[in-house]
């Protein structure tokens, strides 16, 4: 029996999710998926289109939804959007025909948890369902504990690898989400400020590559020097320290490099018409625009960025 579907204890709520909702307008496909899932111990309910599926979800929330992409009434993409809007904790897996990979990619961007090619349903459906359920249950546990959080501190020591930056930002966003600190737009602004600050620390701070080089030959000398210095001491040995302290009313983020530092005051004004086409200073301008407070240390190798929660949001919550 599937470990995720232990028999319900009598004391458990009747509304506890216990089934997978399968959605497809083809009775044959619907039956095929039902057989595959039931064979593995899952309880299955079915719906013939997105509209029908939403009615079923409203009547009783499922563990997850497995849906076809092309259906009458409400198609798979519209169903993903509707589920994300009404009950975002329910994961949605898509089943895709050959040639619909691009639509499936869009669905993933819009919030679908995964997809399974129809030609591979017999082999791939169960592993994907199990994986998505496990991830969703772990996320649910985190969400349940997160509501008790009042502050969070994290410190990272990074190599000068730009591909790390989006992942680092995603990690730093987690405590802000858990603390319900900012709305999505504000978190996006912080993410942009962080991106600028960490890249500045890696490239201009540790690797000592000037943004002026971006002016030349479409930035090729700039990119070449970054690549070269990543393999040369002392540049390659330097690290970026990112420290974030988030509480229920603000987030303070410090980004420090191990380079010689720079004079922020000496930077050209990037909004001066004479400097509009120059590359330097734009990142710092965005940081100042998106954060409430920005400070540099005397040496110029450390930036402190603070964002406060909008007091009206706290009052709304109270």
């Amino acid at each position: 029996m599937n470990p995720l579907l232990k028999p319900s204890m009598p004391s458990e709520e009747m509304s506890e999710p216990d089934h997978i909702l399968v959605v497809d307008d083809s009775p044959t496909q619907l039956r095929q998926m039902q057989i595959v899932l039931e064979k593995d111990g899952f309880l299955v309910q079915t719906a013939v289109d997105g509209k029908n599926a939403m009615q079923s979800i409203q009547a009783k929330a499922p563990l997850m939804v497995v849906t076809d992409l092309q259906m009458p009434e409400m198609n798979g993409l519209e169903l993903v959007a509707a589920v994300k809007a009404s009950t975002p904790s329910i994961p949605v897996i898509l089943t895709t025909s050959q040639g619909s990979e691009e639509i499936a990619a869009k669905a993933l961007r819009d919030g679908a948890a995964s997809y399974v090619p129809k030609r591979d349903l017999n082999n791939a459906l169960i592993p994907v369902v199990r994986q998505v359920l496990a991830v969703n249950q772990a996320a649910q546990s985190v969400r349940e504990v997160a509501k008790f959080a009042i502050e969070s501190t994290i410190t990272l020591r990074l190599e000068n690898e730009e591909v790390l930056v989006p992942k680092v930002i995603a990690r730093l966003e987690l405590p802000m989400v858990e603390l319900d600190l900012f709305d999505e737009g504000e978190r996006m602004q912080i993410a942009m400020a962080l991106d600028e600050a960490i890249l500045n620390a890696m490239i201009h701070g540790n690797l000592e590559v000037s943004s002026e080089l971006r002016q030349t030959d479409d930035g090729k000398p700039y990119n070449d020097l970054i690549k070269k210095r990543k393999g040369i001491s002392p540049y390659m040995d330097r690290r970026v320290i990112v420290h974030m302290h988030a509480s229920v009313d603000s987030a303070t983020i410090v980004v420090r490099d191990e380079g010689p530092g720079f004079d922020a005051e000496a930077l050209r004004d990037p909004t001066d018409p004479e400097n509009l086409e120059r590359a330097g200073g734009r990142g710092l301008l965005l940081i100042n625009a998106f954060m409430d407070e920005v400070h540099h240390n005397d040496r110029g190798n450390e930036i402190t960025m603070i964002k406060h929660k909008d007091p009206s949001q706290s009052q709304d919550a109270a």
Partner: peptide, 17 residues
Amino acid sequence: GHISSEFITAMIHVRDH
């Protein structure tokens, strides 16, 4: 969905071309 200042610089190079 989102861009950085590096992408703005890239757009300036594109505009130049």
